[in-house]
Amino acid sequence: MSAFSQIATKSKLTLGLVFPLEAYGGPIPQMKAQEKLAKRAEELGFKALWFRDVPFNDPKFGDAGQLFDPWVYMTHIMNHTKKIALGSASIILPLRHPVHTVKSINSLQILSNERVILGIASGDRPIEYPAFDKDLENRSDLFRDSFFYIKALQGDFPHYTSKYYGKTNGGIDLLPKYHNKTPMLVTGHSGQSLDWIAEHSDGWLYYPRDFRTLQLVMQQWKEALNKVEKDWKPFMQSLYVDLATDAKMSPTSIHLGFKSGTEYLIAHLKLLESYGVNHVILNLKYGSRTAEEMIAEIGEKVVPNFS
């Protein structure tokens, strides 16, 4: 079974975690004991670990991700785990050259025994674009150009002319070769129409929304898939969670999520599953307990309900 099929099954929901596996204030985590926690998450049945692409620390944004380069850190965690899926959430296509992106993808797929899932985005921090000499006004075009160049580069001796990133004339080949399909999930809209995402991506990564908005979004996603004659593609989302020690505690709002006991967390996730959400990426940043405690309790009490 591929890593993608392990986390994305129609009418079923699975759970993953995003780095840092840490509860912390401010934008910069300590990144301690992450290897131990990643192994523990795998043992407990979480289906994926997710890595973010954050080139710079923007103090106004308040989130520097896992600090380390996503490809480097994914390789590091790969060597401390065995089978859990390794996902990017998300690689900023306009700010990375497609050749280097494909080189990294192919290398990691082979070295990890095909555990990589590629979340992709146009970026949510405009201040980064000048550092790469990229025009923010062009980010939608840059995203599409990179997307299709990546697709071409995954073939043999590619012949492709990119508007922004160069061209290959069929006389050179990119190694190592990885001929199986690497899933590419678009995050948010990344400057694209939902019809474009439904046609070209392998799934959609979205953000936490209230249930009424989620139902509307899911209906729009289904309609977009119907337009391009696709029966189903997975829908995934992030969710910030602070797990209370009282299992029966009712939810209180936190940024892009809630604090609650395990009983409400299970009920919330079951409702997401009923709406068609296939994978939820849990973020523990705003936790009032340690990540180790929350991962253990979620793994023991929540994950079994979605395995």
Results as ranks from 00 to 15, higher is better:
Pro234Glu: 11
Lys301Ser: 08
Lys12Asp: 09
Gly16Met: 04
Arg96Tyr: 00
Gln66Glu: 11
Ile92Lys: 09
Glu137Arg: 14
Ser250Cys: 03
Thr213Lys: 11
Tyr164His: 10
Leu256Val: 06
Gly261Lys: 09
Pro158Glu: 01
Gly171Tyr: 04
Asn180Cys: 02
His76Leu: 08
Leu136Ser: 10
His279Trp: 05
Leu271His: 13
Ala198Met: 07
Phe306Tyr: 11
Asp135Ala: 08
Gln154Glu: 14
Ile92His: 12
Ala8Gln: 08
Tyr206Phe: 12
Pro27Cys: 03
Lys83Tyr: 00
Val72Arg: 05
Arg52His: 05
Asn305Thr: 09
Ala64Leu: 00
Val228Cys: 14
Leu269Gly: 06
His189Thr: 10
Leu15Asn: 04
His189Pro: 00
Ile298Asn: 12
Tyr164Thr: 06
Ser307Gly: 10
Arg212Glu: 13
Lys285Asn: 07
Lys285His: 04
Asp202Ser: 02
Gln192Tyr: 00
Asp58Arg: 07
Glu42Pro: 13
Leu265Gln: 09
Lys60Glu: 14
Asp242Ala: 12
Ser5Leu: 12
Val99Tyr: 13
Lys230Ile: 12
Pro98Trp: 07
Leu185Ile: 15
Gln109Ser: 02
Phe68Asn: 10
Glu229Cys: 04
Pro304Cys: 01
Glu43Cys: 02
Thr81Leu: 01
Ile266Gly: 06
Thr81Val: 05
Ser90Ala: 15
Tyr240Val: 03
His189Ser: 09
Pro158Ile: 06
Tyr286Glu: 14
Leu93Trp: 01
Ser107Thr: 15
